[in-house]
Write a protein that binds this DNA or RNA. Structure first.
Lengths: 167, 167
DNA sequence: CGAGATGTGTCAATATGGCTGACGTAAAAT
DNA sequence: ATTTTACGTCAGCCATATTGACACATCTCG
């Protein structure tokens, strides 16, 4: 139970506001993934492949363990998807120099091309939304999403804005 | 095409900014669904059940076709999940009055209880993020997400804010 | 009234992407 | 030398999605 009666208007508005956020996230995420999903279908790949390609592209030389940490899936789940991408030459693996047990992952040219194609649709979608919302909104968007992310992964996102470091 | 070389710094920053958004969405959505997923697992349900329960709770008397329109899945996919929820008495179906072909959906008390439990964790997560980000950020968050949603579904979200009223 | 469109359910087949548990091997760390 | 770590793999299970076809009741419209 727990509502309406006990705290009349204030909690009702609050609940409504929060539910709107739930729905915004649902619809936005659904549309956010729709285009890449369609592209991937042509290659007989799925969303899981996209995630792997994206993060390998983002972090060249990433180790399998690190990638598992980002995706939060099991080794076996990753293995099937990663195996396909390696076999089809979208990703290459090579032993780490410091630690030769590692298989460091990197996109091939082919992989980069697919990555570009996939993320382009998403970047365009976000760019459009950013433009429509106006510059002031972007900061709020980032802050709220950041607040939804667990402490640990939050550290992946540097300072207040895209600016700071050299890089 | 289109990068780095042609427009040196500006497009680089822009790309970086957009990629951050991609990742924010990925991590936030992942964490956003983690808790409900864990709860659902106890009931042997999955995320699909959550979506159905949520939207039926949100739109009592919704028809199957309308629900399909929201979820953007096929009738067959919905049917299995919905069938379970009806069999287990989380949802009741009854013929529409105006159109008796329709099976209008509604949560039972049991369904409402589960809905409350599931969405509570999400509302709490968002409330925390809203608080941390500050009131000014919420508007931006909403605007950007809204801009990512297709024209049609965007209409589901009424006015600028939850508080055309007092508050 | 009758024909067609609509809302819903269902059957069969298939694919994807998660999971657990167990085991193996190479290399690093202690 | 032993233990731990990084990675791979096998086998099996389950949830969720797909397409295509068909059936039935009911509504709508000429």
């Amino acid at each position: 139970m727990a509502d309406v009666k006990s705290e009349p208007a204030q909690s009702f508005l609050r609940d409504e506001e929060l539910r709107q956020a739930i729905e915004l996230l649902f619809f936005a995420y659904r549309d956010f993934t729709a285009e890449p999903d369609a592209i991937l279908a042509k290659w007989k790949f799925g969303r899981a492949h996209h995630r792997v390609i994206y993060f390998v592209g983002r972090h060249p030389q990433i180790s399998v363990t690190e990638l598992l940490g980002i995706l939060k899936i099991t080794k076996q789940s990753l293995s099937r998807v990663l195996g396909q991408l390696v076999r089809d030459a979208y990703i290459v693996q090579r032993p780490g120099l410091r630690d030769r047990r590692q298989r460091l992952l990197e996109l091939t040219e082919r992989g980069k091309e697919l990555e570009r194609q996939l993320s382009e649709t998403q970047r365009a979608l976000i760019a459009r939304a950013y433009r429509a919302a106006g510059g002031g909104s972007v900061e709020g968007f980032r802050k709220v999403l950041l607040g939804m992310i667990n402490e640990e992964d939050r550290r992946r996102f540097p300072r207040p804005l895209t600016g700071t470091g050299p890089r």
